[in-house]
Each structure stands twice: as C-alpha cells, then as structure tokens.
Measured scan of single mutants.
Amino acid sequence: HNGKLCKLKGIAPLQLGKCNITGWLLGNPECDSLLPARSWSYIVETPNSENGACYPGDLIDYEELREQLSSVSSLERFEIFPKESSWPNHTFNGVTVSCSHRGKSSFYRNLLWLTKKGDSYPKLTNSYVNNKGKEVLVLWGVHHPSSSDEQQSLYSNGNAYVSVASSNYNRRFTPEIAARPKVRDQHGRMNYYWTLLEPGDTIIFEATGNLIAPWYAFALSRGFESGIITSNASMHECNTKCQTPQGAINSNLPFQNIHPVTIGECPKYVRSTKLRMVTGLRNIPSIQYRGLFGAIAGFIEGGWTGMIDGWYGYHHQNEQGSGYAADQKSTQNAINGITNKVNSVIEKMNTQFTAVGKEFNNLEKRMENLNKKVDDGFLDIWTYNAELLVLLENERTLDFHDLNVKNLYEKVKSQLKNNAKEIGNGCFEFYHKCDNECMESVRNGTYDYPKYSEESKLNREKIDGVKLESMGVYQILAIYSTVASSLVLLVSLGAISFWMCSNGSLQCRICI
C-alpha cells in the first residue's frame, strides 16, 4: 500500500475532517465546509473527530445509520420544511452556546429548535410527501429539559409530546424532565432520530412541544462500492481501485494482509504473511546465498510486491572476458508455465471484495464479540484455502523447474562428451581453451567436438587428477538461474548478450 488516501476510480472521497457522521448530518456549525458535499467514492472519518452533536445527546440507531450510509455515493440536500413558512405559530430561531460559531450562539444547520411564540405553543402538524424518486433521509430531535421551569419557559406545556409517523415508522416521544450533570454547559439533553422515507411515502410530524424540527433532508443515491473508513492518512493526487484505512492498494494479487476493511475492488484479506509461490528452483544453499535460486511470486499485497520470474541462460568467462545470454527457448517455456500457473491461482482465488467494518453500540458488546468470532472463522478458512492451494502448486513448480534445468544440462553434456569433466555440482571442467566463438557454439548447439578432442585428450593426460582450476583450465557451469522482474525479464530476452569482463582471468566458464 502507499499510505495515502486516493480517488477511487477517479472519484474523490468525502473527508469529514474534524467532524464525524453525526456532526455532518445534523449540521454542526463547525462542519459548515461539508454542506456543499454532493457525491463521493467513500467517506473518511478520523479516529478522534471532535465535532459531532454540539448540544449533548445521542443519535439513536447511529450504527444502523452508518451502515445505511456505507452504500450511499451521492445525496441532494434540500429544504424539507421551509423555515419561514412551515411554522407560522412558533418561534424557530432557537440557539445555544453549546453550538457556538465564530463566538456567537448558533444551532444545527439542518434542524430548527421550535419554541413557544408569545406565551403559547399551539399543537403543530406538518407533513412531507417524498417526490424525489429515491429514498429521503429525514432527521429530527426531541429536547429533554433539566427542570419543569425550563419546560414551561420554552414550550408552555408541561405534558408535551412529539409524534412522527410514516408508512414504515411510527413513534411517540415524551420529554424526560430530570436533573443531569452539566455537559457542554447544558443540564438538558437532546436525542436525535432518523428514518428513511421511501419514494411516494408521507411523513407526518405532530407536537405540542420539545420538537427539534427537520429543516433540511437528504435524497440518497446508492453506490455499492462506497463505504466509510476511519483513517488518519492524508489525501493525495492519486487514483486506485482499492482503498484501505492504511493506504491505497493497486494490485491484481488475490490476497492482502494490510487491513480487513477495504473499499472498492480489493484482494481478499488473509492473516498469512508467507503466502508465496515459487518460480525458481529448489533451494541450493551456495546459490541461494548469491540470490540466484528460489525466486518467488508473492500473492499477498503487503507481504511480497508483485511476481518475480526466474529465467535460464548461459554465463561464460574466458580470456576475452565474461558474458550472459538467455536461453530463449527454455526461458519462454518457463515463463509460459509460470504465467499459466499464476493465472490459474488468481482465477481460482481472485474475487474482488469490498469489506466494511460493522458498528455496534456499547450495549451490543456481546453481539460485536460474536460477530468478530464469526469473521475470524471465515478469515481462517480463507487463509487455509489460500495456503493449501499455493503449497500444492509450489511442489509442481519445483518439479517443473528441475526438468527444465536438467534438459539444459543434458544438452551441454551431450555436446562436450569427454572434452570436459562433470564435477558433480552442476559444473563441467573443460580440457581445452574455449574462446567466445567456442562458447557461442555450446550455447547454440553447434559445438565442434572433433575440433577440440585432441587438445582435450592431451590435457587429460597431463592433469592426472590435479585440480583443474589450479592448472588454468576452464570450467563450464551447467545450471544457472538469475532473477529478474517481469519487465526486466522481457528486456533481457530482447538482448543477445551483455558482457562482464574479468581482467586477466584465465578461467573459461559457460553457465546455464
């Protein structure tokens, strides 16, 4: 991952900044910058967002509201009850120091605090018919004063009620008058409520006091790749198909172990950190130390980045220098085999997901714990399936590479015959000098055995068991695999060879 928040398929997220979902939807004055928000790819909250409900109280069923919003990608904020005409018999300019803005008392931008007009609070009834052709999110509140005197001074009615009804919602609220500790300079409380109004449905408000009335509502448009994440990451000019709280993932790998919460087309989250597919040879310690064997393909974004291909070729060293050249036929066979294998694994496992966190309130801790156990169970199954699949494929890959290298080895052996000696570690020792032209003939299969047989015969008789390297004779190393990324691999195959001279070296080696 890149540690950044990015656009998702070209669409920017909605960053709530210092506000949370509650503050944004109710219209906390400190969240005025969010009022123009219309569309987004996903919503970003920060872990310690401080601006929620400015007048103390709870947004009821907040967790369910977050779940609903996680599939919303755009909205239209509109005046559901026009301020100047909807409440002619009531005062609608209630403000509070708890919702101060720029040093002055204020109130929510989407709600109206209705109080008595003169000395009376006549029963009010108002309704709205949803003609938007889509779901409408309606929010309101109920004020709970701290004393009967406060109730009387604001609403005149000691036994007030609030009723809200639609086809799918029907509740009646009565204020709970009680002494409470002071929070944000208030002994009173406000509880906030919401409902989704279906197209064509009607919502009716009736009250004799204590109503925090809707002013603006939201017509919602769903987008199934949307979601809500909690993150401290910063926004950058970048684009992605998959976003996590820790950063964007741009990967076609089937798995990731970065974060379980994802938005967009994302690899499946697994616990494993070692889900690797081999593309090189079986481990040979001396070669492995030099980083030549054991190439791997990573299938977990965050564990290993991208696929690494092994390729086969020849390396030689003689009086004229040293050089490398790919054996294109065996390399292409290996590439085709690995590509098919990788595609097979991805096809089997690479279903892209959006995974969002589930919200539970403080009273639902047991449910949250149960949900976590269920999620953990599914996660263990996914991890096991992934590891088992790759384990089985790896064994076949190792066998496949062994065969490829063996074929190259036999190709060289059949040409050199007794003009060189096998020394048991995949290397041959020449009994004759071999210049670049000679080396090329070994690589392309045109090695002239009779041409060098007499010199080889004489050297075999002279050496008589002495280690060949100390006599200045020449080696050919018969097994060799270097490691390159897919891009470098293609470039390498396009070149005939490249040279690395070893000044004054008397050794001649050709490596497979």
Rank of each mutant, 00 (worst) to 15 (best):
N385E: 10
D402E: 15
L489R: 00
V442L: 00
C511A: 10
L468G: 00
N503L: 12
V261P: 00
T351W: 05
M471C: 05
N252C: 03
G291A: 14
W499C: 06
A484G: 07
N419V: 09
Q352C: 09
Y289M: 06
M235R: 11
S344Q: 12
V261M: 14
Y314H: 04
F353C: 02
L388I: 09
D399S: 15
P450S: 10
H236Q: 11
N340F: 08
K417A: 13
L408I: 15
N436A: 08
H316Q: 06
L391M: 10
A420Y: 15
I249G: 01
F430K: 14
G294W: 05
N252Q: 02
I249M: 12
I479T: 13
I308Q: 09
C511E: 07
G280Q: 06
V342L: 15
G323F: 12
N350L: 03
T240F: 02
I463F: 00
C427V: 12
K372H: 04
K462S: 07
P260S: 01
N425L: 13
D464K: 12
R396T: 13
G323Q: 11
K241V: 10
K241C: 01
I338H: 03
N407T: 15
K421I: 05
T446P: 01
N350S: 15
Q352S: 01
G323W: 02
Q243I: 08
L379D: 05
Q352R: 15
E364L: 06
A334C: 09
L391A: 08
G323S: 13
F353E: 03
Y431V: 01
K329I: 05
N444E: 13
P267M: 09
D435W: 06
G313R: 01
Y312D: 04
H432D: 10
D402L: 14
T240N: 06
E437P: 12
M367L: 15
N407G: 06
S441P: 03
K406S: 03
V374N: 02
S344H: 02
A233V: 11
C501W: 11
V491Q: 00
F498C: 02
G337S: 15
C434W: 09
S322K: 10
D376G: 09
I308N: 02
K457A: 13
Y474M: 11
D448A: 12
N362E: 12
K451Q: 09
Y474F: 14
K413M: 10
K341C: 02
Q246R: 08
F299H: 06
Q317R: 11
I496R: 00
D380P: 02
S481W: 10
R366N: 08
G298Q: 06
